[in-house]
Design a protein around this nucleic acid. Sequence first.
DNA 1: GGTAGTTGTTGAAATGTTTCAGTCGGCGTA
DNA 2: TACGCCGACTGAAACATTTCAACAACTACC
Lengths: 339, 339
Amino acid sequence: MVVGKAPSVKDVAAAAGVSLGTVSNVMNRPEMVATATRERVERAMADLGFVRNESARQLRAGTSRTLAYVMLDGSNPFFHDVAQGIELAAEDADLSLFICNSNGRAAREEVHLDRLVQQRVQGILITPVDPDSAFLGEVSRRGIPVVVVDRVRDSNFCSVAVDDVYGGRIAVEHLIENGHTRVAFAGGPEALGQVRERLQGAREVWADNGLPPEDLVFLPTDALTVADGREAGERLAGLPVRRRPTAAFCANDLVALGLLQQAIGSGRRVPEDLAIVGFDDIEFAAAAAVPLTSVRQPRQELGRAAAQLVLDEATNPAHVHEQAIFTPELIARASTAVH
Amino acid sequence: MVVGKAPSVKDVAAAAGVSLGTVSNVMNRPEMVATATRERVERAMADLGFVRNESARQLRAGTSRTLAYVMLDGSNPFFHDVAQGIELAAEDADLSLFICNSNGRAAREEVHLDRLVQQRVQGILITPVDPDSAFLGEVSRRGIPVVVVDRVRDSNFCSVAVDDVYGGRIAVEHLIENGHTRVAFAGGPEALGQVRERLQGAREVWADNGLPPEDLVFLPTDALTVADGREAGERLAGLPVRRRPTAAFCANDLVALGLLQQAIGSGRRVPEDLAIVGFDDIEFAAAAAVPLTSVRQPRQELGRAAAQLVLDEATNPAHVHEQAIFTPELIARASTAVH
DNA sequence: GGTAGTTGTTGAAATGTTTCAGTCGGCGTA
DNA sequence: TACGCCGACTGAAACATTTCAACAACTACC
């Protein structure tokens, strides 16, 4: 049962009575070896249970067959959908995808990046903790293509993101159209670009409609999780009735779900007492007890586009950096239905 | 801006005025090189921006620094929690974790496994599409430690799972205690070991309580997704009132969430009209609009234990295969509260 | 001042591939 | 028959490390 060491090309060559080079050719340019020989070699491979050693291949060929995605928050399904899009593109290009998770910690992110550079991966896709981190620049300078996902850096990087300001606009516009004149924005921390821009869009459209700024209430949260959403909901409920918003726009769906849960749990009705709009349109948004209106990001498409950019950068010498911006779309569901 | 090729050990050695071997020693056994030399070498490394080439290291040393987890369904948060547990253990052991997703397709799973073998990873953790697949046996026979997660194979494999029969028992026992005498079991396909065993546990405890088998209604689904749950909910609602169950036990939380959504959406109250128990206790279960009673699996712990087994198998010559079984726990929440 | 031991460093072999300049034999053409 | 050509195959170098036997320089001891 215990096996000796794995058979190498040399063993295959010996078994098939050919030279090393021929075995390699069978694997890498089968068209230039005679059919009979090729079959003999393939036979030998199967008999010996030969599996190519990728380290050796990569060392010699100098090119890796894997892409990596460093995601920001493994507990947010949004990032898994992005990853899924990347995976599909990687599959098409016959590459493996290495998925890492920084969990929002810069230190962990750096460890991952460091390892990826050691592995000399073909390209790195990343939703960084801080898009402007110097370390990211170093990786890129080292010659590894880096694409920033769901965030934007400067023009030295490719990036793929969504127009968050516009997303904020359509969310709040929808609420205004539905007759709301007091609206909360729940999300944070403000250091997050997403949060800032979605809030900005909300404020812009609010002003455009001539509504008084103080009626767009900012409800800051520590992070963008369900628990933070619940907590924001409690603060919202604590406001005096005449100042209490009748609708909330949340910086992402997790916060919106938390808010929804808190509202229903404390006996308020959604959307009658409180209308809610989320952001991302994760699968659980539609599946919530009151299906959630949300600003849809083309999650898989984001991933796919990012993968294509990184591949272009890796293989096309004439590559020029590109900041792709997608336009989000409002998906109206029960949580904002007019009653 | 364009960089020449990456500096190698040789370049570092030249820059520091030492030999190749010394540079290697600085990296791998720093204690046996004089402090002054070591500092000189480290200095040179930093100056040149040297990053060790992992392929070459692995080729020569013959040992990989990465673990891999092939997960079954990227859209189920349960598996991400397991992955998180593995990641923590990997971090402790200073290893990288490669996450792959088979999405329930055996073909994709095989592609992933094949690549992992090519990479000669240290160990593979997998929640397989089919735990008895022959391919898995081949991988293991090749000398790569394989641990089956959340499923059980024969005694030639380590595995980590939860006692599903017991889980089924406590779920239904809870419902019986709450006074329900007509209960549905929603889940499928029956080919899934999980589904079969959870149902079995449910039936056992049902019989133990002297209840008539026909009052435990099997509501089969195509898969374990939210959509399937909704669909099962519709079928449930379609039953004549006198035969309609007053409670449902779902094979996992996604199905339970779907059922919950359908029930509330069509005006029934939970738990008054329909009590619901899920399985897995994913984070969204507690965050549902009606917090879900669920059978908790120690998700992270599962992953952590699996990682430890795979590491033991990889490093301990005296390793003996082990089938770890965890005991699940019922977490009662509002969806089954007695009114 | 020779011997033994210790500490730090070296140099070369080895790892499993790919790549490329050659070799070899056979075939068609002049 | 000589020539060039072509297709199929070979052999060795190269890739960036690690490892290990050997060596050099000291120190300590008698």
